[in-house]
């Protein structure tokens, strides 16, 4: 085989590297991926003693069924009752379902004036082409306000449970964090390099078009959140902390939810007193239309995206 390049220069080309990788001569991970294998669980003598003691107590009081008549009776009783309960429940539900009105029948009770008005007037009333968004963010906005607070309070509960506040523990957690992922994984990084922008842009698209096409704040926010999680997985917490820290999270959530509350308070107040809100609905179909729905969608989207990422960060190392 004639070769234009000398051996040394050939070794520098990409073709050679690909060929070498293909033949399996060199593992591209060696020396580049920093993965600390999870150590087998170690414990000092005292905690081990305590654990063995605890386990013995547990064994004696809970699992030693043969010598504990009461427990044996209970566990048998429990098994029988639970199976019976589940089957009764399934039976009742199936029996009940057979008496329900058939799906999609025009004469069903739920095909009444409520649904009809939603379908006919939603575009005119709310300015949203996507009737579902019009319903959840305008007709029944109070429920959705409650629903976004469910999300907020769920995050707070996770914060209570998992947030690590003391300095020393935080450091320990951060060191342990390397156990969960390889650092500088090339494949992951390259894939993430292409995918993350696309996922985030798609999420933004879904949020901004919430009133025009399927989707909306919640789904778009979840998509952005998963994009952020992929980014963290590929590039590590150090990189994401350049633009997203606990403070950012706090303020984004605060501003978005506060805006949501204030905007809805204003609009409820006006609605109850039959006043005009003075917010133009615009022409249905435009991106800047349907009054408050677009800003509210953006707020919900931001809250959801931050929440999803916050959950992940909390689960991984108890902080950002």
């Amino acid at each position: 085989m004639s070769r234009l390049l000398s051996e040394q220069e050939y070794r520098k080309t990409k073709a050679f590297k690909v060929k070498r990788w293909y033949r399996g001569d060199k593992d591209p991970y060696i020396g580049r991926v920093e993965l600390r294998p999870q150590k087998p669980f170690e414990e000092d003598v005292n905690t081990q003693k305590k654990r063995i003691h605890d386990e013995a107590i547990l064994q004696r009081n809970i699992y030693d069924i043969e010598h504990n008549r009461k427990l044996m009776m209970f566990s048998k009783f429990y098994k029988v009752i639970s199976v019976l309960f589940v089957f009764t429940l399934i039976g009742i539900l199936l029996y009940m379902v057979s008496y329900l009105p058939p799906v999609g029948n025009a004469a069903n009770p739920d095909n009444n004036e409520v649904a009809t008005k939603y379908i006919e007037d939603a575009m005119k009333d709310t300015g949203a082409v996507n009737i579902v968004t019009g319903m959840i963010l305008d007709y029944r906005a109070f429920d959705t306000l409650g629903e976004s607070n469910v999300l907020f309070i769920a995050t707070c509960t996770v914060l209570i449970l998992l947030r690590v506040d003391s300095r020393s523990k935080k450091k320990e957690e951060e060191e342990n964090d390397r156990l969960y992922e390889p650092k500088n994984d090339i494949i992951l990084q390259k894939v993430a390099f292409f995918l993350v922008p696309m996922i985030i842009i798609f999420g933004i698209y879904v949020i901004l078009n919430g009133h025009l096409s399927p989707g909306g704040g919640f789904s778009g926010g979840a998509i952005i959140g998963s994009g952020l999680i992929l980014y963290v997985n590929a590039f590590g917490f150090k990189k994401i902390e350049r633009f997203f820290t606990q403070k950012t999270y706090k303020w984004i959530c605060f501003v978005a939810l506060l805006f949501y509350c204030l905007a809805k308070t204003y609009s409820f107040y006006c609605g109850a007193h039959h006043l005009e809100t003075g917010i133009p609905l615009g022409t249905p179909g435009d991106i800047l239309s349907s009054g408050l729905i677009l800003p509210l969608n953006i707020c919900v989207g931001m809250v959801v995206a931050c929440t999803m990422y916050a959950f992940y960060a909390m689960f991984r190392k108890g902080g950002f």
Partner: peptide, 13 residues
């Protein structure tokens, strides 16, 4: 009853 929003009861909250 107090209307939550611009739409009367069966449609709004």
């Amino acid at each position: 009853t107090f209307m939550m929003g611009h739409f009367p009861a069966p449609w709004g909250n």
